[in-house]
Design a protein around this nucleic acid. Structure first.
Lengths: 343, 343
DNA sequence: TTGAAAGCGTTACCAT
DNA sequence: ATGGTAACGCTTTCAA
C-alpha cells in the first residue's frame, strides 16, 4: 500500500533542493522561474506523486475556486433539472472550478453563510421569482451570483433565461398558420403565477398577447403540474369546448397526461388534434407521438450560467451579461393542419 | 452594504472576552464549557453574523467533510442518473457533508488527486465494471469509497446495487405466469457485456437462467441503447419470429422505441403483446401505456450510498456493508395474459 | 531568479 | 472550565 498522501510542498522543495516559494511559483504557473529549475521541480513532483492540498491553497489564496448550484428540491425533478446540473457541472469542471451541488433548503443565514464561510466564490440561482428575496439579499451584500431565470428588476445582474413570452406567442403563431382557431391553453398553477414564479408569469403574458394578436377566444386552465392533473384538465377542456382542435401546454414531461386524455377522447394526434409543449429535446422524443415543442435548452443554460459566473469571478470589472435566449419551436409529430370539416 | 465577511473566530473571542480556544470548543459542540460562557459566546456569534471559515476548518481538522460522486458523462443521462445524484446529495446534506459533483473524465492521477489534495474524504463510484481499475486503485491505496454497483471480487468493499439477475428472472416468471412462452429479450449492447459492465453482465446471466428454468427458446438481440435502435430491433425480432407475444428489455427510457415499434406492427399493448422494462417509477408512468417494470430505485440507491460512505468515514472500524436490493416487479399496464388463439 | 518569513482562520494539544 | 501556542500546507510580500 503506497503512501503518498503525506507529500507536501515542503517535501518537494527539499527533494528538489529549492525553496517552498519556488515550488509554489511553479505550481501556479508564475513567471520568474528558470527553465531548468522548473523542469527539475516538475520532475520531482511527478516522482513523489505530489498533489497540492486544496484546502490549504484556498485558505492562503483567499479563493475557494468553487461555485455552487442552489437546487430547490421542492418540486418533482426531471430531465430539465438534470440538464441544468450537468451543464453547469461540466462548464465548471472545464474552468477548473469545483462544483458544489446544494439541495438542502436555504435560509437567509445559510445563503450568506456559503460566502462567509468561504465555501463558494459565487452561486447559480434557479427557480427565480419576479420578486426574489435571495436576489435582493445577495445584491445587498454584493456577493457574486448569476441567475437561471430573471426577476422584475435586473439592473446590474447577470442571467440566462428562456424567453417564455416570445415562445408561447411562437407556438400560437405556428398553430394559427396550420389553420387552428380553437386553441386551449394549459398554464402553470395559478398560485405559481401569483407568487411571481418567472416562467408562470411570462408564459401567461405570452398567452394574453397571443390571444390579442390573433383575436382568439380564451379557453384555458391553470392546473397542478402532474400527469393526472393534466389528463383531467384536458378532458374538462374538451367537454367545455368540443370544437377545440389544439392545445398549448406550458408543462414539461407531465404533458403526457394531455396526450393520453386526447387518445381516450378519441382525438388522434396530430390528425384530429395538435399539441405543443415545452420540454428538452430528449423528453420530446420519448413521447408518442414525438412532441412539437418550444425547445428548452437546459444544458446550454447550465453551461452559460456557470461560464458567466466564473468569468465574473475572474475579472474585477464585473460585466453583467443578460442572455434571453431567442424563441425556438421544434416541429415534430404532434402538430398538423386543422382538419377541414372537423366538428 | 453590511460587511460581515471579515468576521473571524478572533473577533468573536475578543468581543465575548474569552479565548479563541473556547470559541472553537463551542463551535464544535465540545464539552467542558460552562453554560453561561456558551450562551454568551453564542449570542456574540449571532450578533456579529459570524460563520466559521470552512477551508481553515478543514485544513486544521484534517478532514474535508466532503464526498464526491464521480459521474461519467460518456452516456446519455436521464431520470435514472438524476435520481442517483439527487439522492446522494440530499443524504450528504442531511449529514452535514458537502457534496461535490464531478463530471470531468477521471484518470488514475486525478482520482488519487481527489484524496491527496484533501478535496474529499470519500467517493461514490458508479457504472461499475466486473473488473474495474478505479476499484482496484482505491483498494490498493486504501482510500474510502462505496460503489453503486459491484464487481467480481467485493471482499472488504461496500456497495449498494440492484439485483439485476434476480430481477430479469422475476420478469420472466411474471410473463410465464400470464401464459407467455414466446418471449424476446433485448439486452445491453454486446460490447458492454464483454467489457464487464455490471448490469449488462448480470441481466444476461438472468436471461440465461430464465431460459433454462422455463425451457424457453432463446430469441434475443443486443442493441445500442437508444429509441431508434430498439425500434428497429423490435421489428427485426417480430420478423424473425412472428409468434412472439412478449418482450423483456433491459434498457431504461429508450424502451419507448419498443412500444412504438409494436404499435407500428399492429400489436396492441397489452392486449396482443406484453412488455417489461427496467426504469424508475417516474419514467414508467410517462410511457403510454404505463410500463410494467423492474423497479430501479435510483434515488434510494443514491441515499444509501452516501449514508454508507459517511458512516464509514465517521467510524474507524470500517464495517463493510453490501446491499443487494431484492428484486421488485411493478405491474402496470403493459403486460397481460397471452391471447388464447393468438397467431 | 530565488528565498525567508509572515500570514490565512482554524483545531489540537498541553498547561493551568 | 479555560487559555496559550504550535501546527495545518499553502500563497504572498519583501528583500536579496
Amino acid at each position: 500500500m503506497p503512501d503518498t498522501s503525506e507529500v507536501t510542498i515542503f517535501d518537494v522543495a527539499q527533494a528538489a533542493g529549492v525553496s517552498i516559494t519556488t515550488v509554489s511559483r511553479i505550481l501556479n504557473n508564475k513567471p520568474d522561474v528558470s527553465k531548468t529549475t522548473r523542469q527539475r521541480v516538475q520532475q520531482v513532483i511527478e516522482e513523489l506523486g505530489y498533489t497540492p492540498h486544496a484546502q490549504a491553497r484556498r485558505l492562503a489564496a483567499r479563493k475557494s475556486r468553487t461555485i455552487a448550484l442552489l437546487f430547490p428540491l421542492d418540486r418533482a425533478v426531471g430531465q430539465l433539472e438534470l440538464d441544468f446540473i450537468v451543464g453547469a457541472a461540466a462548464a465548471a469542471g472545464n474552468e477548473n472550478f469545483f462544483f458544489y451541488f446544494v439541495t438542502t433548503p436555504i435560509t437567509k443565514n445559510s445563503l450568506l453563510g456559503l460566502y462567509r464561510s468561504a465555501q463558494v466564490d459565487g452561486i447559480i440561482l434557479m427557480e427565480i421569482h419576479t420578486q426574489d428575496w435571495r436576489v435582493d439579499l445577495l445584491r445587498e451584500y454584493d456577493y457574486p451570483f448569476v441567475m437561471i431565470g430573471h426577476c422584475a428588476d435586473n439592473t446590474g445582474l447577470s442571467f440566462v433565461d428562456v424567453d417564455f413570452e416570445a415562445n408561447i406567442i411562437l407556438a400560437f403563431d405556428h398553430l394559427i398558420e396550420l389553420g387552428h382557431r380553437e386553441i386551449g391553453f394549459l398554464g402553470h398553477p395559478q398560485a405559481m403565477r401569483q407568487q411571481g414564479y418567472g416562467p408562470a408569469v411570462r408564459c401567461w403574458a405570452g398567452y394574453e398577447k397571443a390571444l390579442q394578436k390573433h383575436s382568439l377566444t380564451p379557453i384555458y386552465r391553470e392546473e397542478r403540474i402532474d400527469v393526472q392533473a393534466l389528463f383531467d384538465a384536458t378532458l374538462t377542456l374538451l367537454e367545455e369546448r368540443p370544437q377545440l382542435t389544439a392545445i398549448v401546454a406550458t408543462q414539461g414531461s407531465p404533458i403526457v397526461g394531455v396526450v393520453r386524455a386526447l387518445r381516450q377522447a378519441g382525438r388522434a394526434v396530430p390528425d384530429d388534434f395538435s399539441v405543443v409543449g415545452i420540454t428538452t429535446e430528449n423528453m420530446a422524443e420519448l413521447i408518442t407521438p414525438p412532441l412539437t415543442t418550444i425547445n428548452f435548452p437546459a444544458y446550454t443554460e447550465g453551461v452559460q450560467a456557470a461560464r458567466m459566473l466564473i468569468s465574473q469571478l475572474n475579472q474585477k470589472p464585473l460585466e453583467t451579461e443578460q442572455i434571453l435566449l431567442p424563441p425556438e419551436l421544434i416541429v415534430r409529430k404532434s402538430t398538423g393542419p386543422v382538419r377541414t370539416g372537423s366538428r
